[in-house]
C-alpha cells in the first residue's frame, strides 16, 4: 500500500468532514437522530397543542391534572434536595477515605440504578404494606405510608438515590483531596473546607446530577404506580395521570399532560447541556 500524496497535505481543521464516507455517516446520524429522537418529541408536543393553546390550557387546569402537576413538583422539591445531600455525603465518603466495607457500600449505592422500577415499588410494599414487614407496627402507631404521598416520596428517593453520587464520585476521585488537605493545614475547619474548597470545585457536576435526578423524579412511572393507590386528585402523579386519562378515553387530556412533561424534558436537556459545558470549561 502506497502513501497517497494527497494525504500528506493535511487540512487545517481535521474535524471538518472531508470524505464522502464522513458525510454519509453524518447523514445517517441526522436521519437516525431525527427519526428516533426528534419525531417522537415533536409528535407529543404537536398532538398536545393540536386543538390550540386554549384547549391545552383547559385540559391542564382540570383539577385532577392540576393536582397531579402539583404533586409531581412537590415530589421533586422533596426528593431532589435529600438526594443532593446524600450524594455529597456519599461521594465525600467514597473518594476521601479508605475503610473496610467500601465496596459493599458502593454496591448499595449503585443498586437502585440497575434494578427495575417495579422491583422498587415491590420492595416498599413488602416493607410498609399492611401485610408487610413493618406495616403492622406502623398501623399500631396509626402511621400510614402506603398509598399516600409519603410512599411516592420514598420510592422516588430510592429510584433516584444514585444520580447525584454518580456524577460526583468520578469527579471528586479525579480531583483528589489535596486542595482540602491544604486548606486543612492552613487551619480551616470542616465546614469551611466544604463551602470554600470542595463545593466550588464540584458545583456544576452537582447541579448536573440534580437536574438528572429531578427529571427522573418527575417521570417515574413503574415504582410510583405500585405504591400510589391511584386516588384521583390525591396520589396521582403526572405520568400516572396520563395513563388514567388515556383509559378515560380522554386522549386530548392525556396528550396535554404528556406534552407538559415533554416540554419539561426539553428544558432539562437545555439545562443539562449548559451545565455540561460549564463542567468542561
Amino acid at each position: 500500500m502506497q502513501i497517497n500524496p494527497a494525504d500528506a497535505s493535511l487540512p487545517a481543521d481535521p474535524r471538518r468532514p472531508q470524505s464522502a464516507v464522513a458525510w454519509g455517516l453524518i447523514g445517517l446520524a441526522y436521519l437516525m437522530a431525527g427519526a428516533v429522537l426528534l419525531v417522537p418529541l415533536l409528535l407529543i408536543v404537536v398532538t398536545g397543542f393540536r386543538e390550540g393553546v386554549g384547549v391545552y390550557l383547559a385540559n391542564i387546569v382540570e383539577p385532577e391534572t392540576l393536582h397531579a402537576i402539583f404533586l409531581t413538583v412537590l415530589a421533586a422539591i422533596v426528593v431532589v434536595p435529600i438526594n443532593v445531600g446524600f450524594g455529597i455525603a456519599a461521594a465525600w465518603l467514597v473518594t476521601r477515605y479508605e475503610f473496610r466495607g467500601k465496596r459493599l457500600l458502593i454496591t448499595f449505592i449503585e443498586i437502585p440504578f440497575s434494578v427495575s422500577p417495579i422491583v422498587a415499588g415491590v420492595i416498599y410494599l413488602f416493607l410498609y404494606g399492611g401485610q408487610g414487614l413493618l406495616g403492622p407496627l406502623l398501623a399500631q402507631f396509626d402511621l400510614k405510608l402506603m398509598f399516600t404521598v409519603w410512599a411516592i416520596f420514598l420510592v422516588s428517593l430510592f429510584v433516584t438515590s444514585p444520580f447525584v453520587a454518580r456524577e460526583l464520585i468520578p469527579l471528586m476521585q479525579q480531583q483528589g483531596g489535596e486542595d482540602e488537605e491544604a486548606a486543612l493545614s492552613l487551619g480551616a475547619n470542616g465546614r469551611q473546607i466544604f463551602w470554600h474548597v470542595t463545593l466550588p470545585n464540584i458545583r456544576w457536576a452537582l447541579l448536573y446530577g440534580a437536574v438528572l435526578c429531578n427529571a427522573r423524579v418527575i417521570g417515574e412511572f413503574g415504582a410510583v404506580s405500585v405504591v400510589s393507590g391511584a386516588i384521583r386528585g390525591q396520589t396521582n402523579t403526572l405520568p400516572l395521570q396520563i395513563e388514567l386519562l388515556f383509559n378515560d378515553f380522554n386522549v386530548t387530556g392525556a396528550f396535554a399532560a404528556a406534552s407538559t412533561l415533554a416540554l419539561l424534558a426539553v428544558l432539562t436537556i437545555v439545562l443539562k447541556s449548559v451545565l455540561e459545558r460549564k463542567t468542561r470549561h
Binding site: 410494599l125 410498609y128 404494606g129 399492611g130 401485610q131 408487610g132 406495616g135 398501623a139 400510614k144 405510608l145 402506603m146 398509598f147 393507590g229 391511584a230 386516588i231 384521583r232 386528585g233 390525591q234
Partner: peptide, 20 residues
C-alpha cells in the same frame, strides 16, 4: 368524594395493604 378505580379484587387487596 375522592375516587380510586381499578380491578375490584386488586382494590380489595390494596385496602388490606393500607388504602384508606
Amino acid at each position: 368524594v375522592n375516587q380510586s378505580h381499578a380491578g375490584s379484587s386488586k382494590q380489595a387487596g390494596l385496602i388490606l395493604e393500607g388504602l384508606e
